[in-house]
């Protein structure tokens, strides 16, 4: 009898452990929203979201985060334009063009690429990409374009890993059928296998968008961080994430609440992206 009660006790422990993840997500939502939403309500949702002036030290201060929203959107679009084609094509290479021996070397490299700390990427971009951009386009070299290149590199492992998995999951009969009809290997891959894997590839892009929009410490080193509406591809910009880090250390009262409210907006962006990702994944599973 004793063994029996021990069994059910441990089952309870396992179940409680499983609840921790749920509890964590509830706590995170609660504290972020409770910290930011009252400020948004007081300041006005439209003024906050669409205000083009971020001047916390003015009197009266203005807290419009449209510049940061646009900044995040621009660098993310830039990262997607650069990272997605290269990522998908690299995944195609790994899945369909690469011999086994080389694959055994390249696959761990990909994991390594995902494991390199973002601060190392950021520092690399600061010391290599920024000077190059400065020489070619003038200015400080810290700009939307620089941040986009950096983020484009950083989302590669995410996109490649998932696209490759979905390419591998395409049934072999597709390939055989196409080749039997006389198509070359390349043609088959490009016009049969890639379209067949499109929902997985789309998922990888969505995940990449989430990574790019949430990245902080690397972007902070190369984006320039000016809190004003984006002025051009080669001008500095500030994103939502960097806005929080840059000012949190010294912010107080309403200014601090405004920063937490920035995190609320970021969080909602991420929840939407996550939701899209999950819907796509569930639909694929069915």
């Amino acid at each position: 009898m004793k063994a029996k009660s021990y069994e059910s006790f441990m089952k309870g422990v396992f179940m409680l452990s499983a609840m921790v993840a749920i509890l964590a997500i509830i706590l995170i939502c609660f504290f972020i929203f409770a910290g930011g939403v009252p400020f948004i309500a007081k300041y006005g949702l439209m003024e906050f979201l669409l205000g083009t002036q971020w001047k916390p030290s003015n009197n009266p201060p203005s807290y419009g985060i449209l510049p940061m929203i646009m900044g995040s959107v621009y660098v993310t679009i830039g990262a997607i334009i650069l990272g997605v084609p290269i990522g998908i094509l690299t995944a195609t290479y790994l899945s369909k063009f690469c011999n086994k021996r080389l694959y055994k070397i390249l696959k761990p490299c990909l994991n390594l690429m995902a494991g390199i700390p973002s601060i190392v990427y950021g520092f690399f971009a600061l010391t290599i990409i920024v000077p190059i951009m400065k020489d070619i386009f003038g200015g400080t070299g810290m700009s939307i374009a620089t941040a986009s290149i950096l983020l484009g590199i950083m989302i590669l492992p995410t996109i490649i890993g998932m696209s490759e998995a979905s390419l591998n999951a395409v049934p072999g009969s597709y390939y055989e059928g196409s080749v039997a009809l006389g198509a070359t290997h390349e043609r088959t891959v490009m016009s049969v296998l890639l379209p067949a894997a499109r929902s997985g590839i789309l998922s990888s892009v969505i995940l990449g968008i989430g990574r790019a929009i949430g990245e902080t410490m690397a972007v902070i080193l190369v984006a320039g961080n000016q809190a004003r509406m984006p002025k051009g591809l080669f001008k500095g910009v500030r994103t939502m994430t960097t806005n929080i880090v840059l000012e949190m250390a010294y912010a107080a009262d309403a200014h601090r609440e405004a920063l937490i409210a920035t995190a609320v907006v970021l969080f909602i962006f991420i929840l939407i992206i996550n939701g899209l990702f999950m819907i796509l994944k569930r639909r694929k599973a069915n």
């Binding site: 972020i32 949430g214 990245e215 970021l266 969080f267 991420i270 992206i273 990702f277 999950m278």
Partner: peptide, 22 residues
Amino acid sequence: VRIATETLSGIPSIVFGLFGML
């Protein structure tokens, strides 16, 4: 639990940082 863990893995680290602080 699955939805919770998937959501958790998508949250940017700065949001974790703010939550931890608050």
